[in-house]
C-alpha cells in the first residue's frame, strides 16, 4: 500500500526509556485478530498503558498528558521479538511517524520502512541527551530531515546524521512501496522463475 510521503518532521516526542522493548509489548498477541489494518493504535503498549481492569496506568509516558508528538523515542534494541507488522501498524495508527532509538531490531525496522514510519538510529549519547532534555522540558522538539538524513534536538541544537539506504529513502520521500517496484520488473521475475524449479 502506498503511504504518506515523509520529508521533514518537527515535533515534540514521547519518551520510552526502556531497553529491549519487544513487539509483544508494542502490541500483545491477543490484539492481532483483526483481518483489516485498522484500530491497532488503541492497543499500542496495551499492557503497559492499562491495568488488567482496563484502568489507565497514569505514570506510563503515553498516558502522561505532558508528553505528546509524532515521534516516539525508545531505548536500545527497540522492536525485538515477533515479526508482527501489527507492531508497526499500531505505532503508526497511534499517530507516530518516526521512532528514534540507539538500536533497532531488524524485522521491526524493515516493517516500519514498509509502512511509512521512519526509524532513526542515533548514537547512545545522542539518545541519552534526548531523554534528558525531554525530562527537563517535555516541550522539547526534535527535527527530522529525511533529505538531509539529520535529526536535531532543537533544545540543544545538537544534530546527528542517520543512515538509510538510498532506495528506501526515495520510497519514503515519494510514498512508494516495494510492491510498486516489484510489479514493474515482473517479466524479469518470471524469467528468473523459469530456471528455479519448485
Amino acid at each position: 500500500m502506498a503511504y504518506d510521503k515523509f520529508d521533514t518532521l518537527t515535533s515534540t516526542a514521547v519518551p520510552l526509556p526502556i531497553e529491549n522493548v519487544d513487539t509483544d509489548q508494542i502490541i500483545p498477541a491477543r490484539f492481532l485478530k483483526a483481518t483489516e489494518r485498522k484500530g491497532f493504535g488503541d492497543n499500542l503498549f496495551r499492557d503497559w498503558r492499562y491495568r488488567p481492569d482496563n484502568s489507565l496506568k497514569e505514570d506510563f509516558p503515553l498516558n502522561d498528558s505532558k508528553y505528546t508528538g509524532k515521534i516516539l523515542v525508545g531505548g536500545k534494541n527497540f522492536g525485538s521479538g515477533s515479526s508482527r507488522e501489527h507492531a508497526a501498524w499500531a505505532v503508526y495508527d497511534y499517530g507516530f511517524r518516526c521512532v528514534v532509538s540507539s538500536f533497532f531490531a531488524d524485522i521491526f525496522r524493515g516493517n516500519c520502512l514498509n509502512i511509512g514510519v521512519l526509524p532513526v538510529q542515533v548514537s547512545p549519547e545522542f539518545l541519552e541527551e534526548i531523554f534528558k532534555t525531554i525530562d527537563a522540558d517535555p516541550k522539547t522538539e526534535l527535527e527530522v530531515d529525511l533529505t538531509e538524513q539529520t535529526i536535531t534536538n532543537l533544545s540543544t541544537g545538537n544534530q546527528e546524521k542517520f543512515e538509510i539506504n538510498h532506495y528506501k529513502k526515495d520510497n519514503m520521500l515519494n510514498g512508494f512501496d516495494d510492491i510498486d517496484y516489484l510489479l514493474n520488473i515482473k517479466s524479469d521475475i518470471k524469467e528468473f522463475a523459469k530456471n528455479t524449479p519448485l
Partner: peptide, 14 residues
C-alpha cells in the same frame, strides 16, 4: 520471518 507487507509482496511477485 517477514512482515505482512512482505507477505503481500511474495504473494504478488514471489
Amino acid at each position: 520471518g517477514i512482515g505482512t507487507s512482505e507477505v503481500e509482496m511474495v504473494l504478488a511477485t514471489q
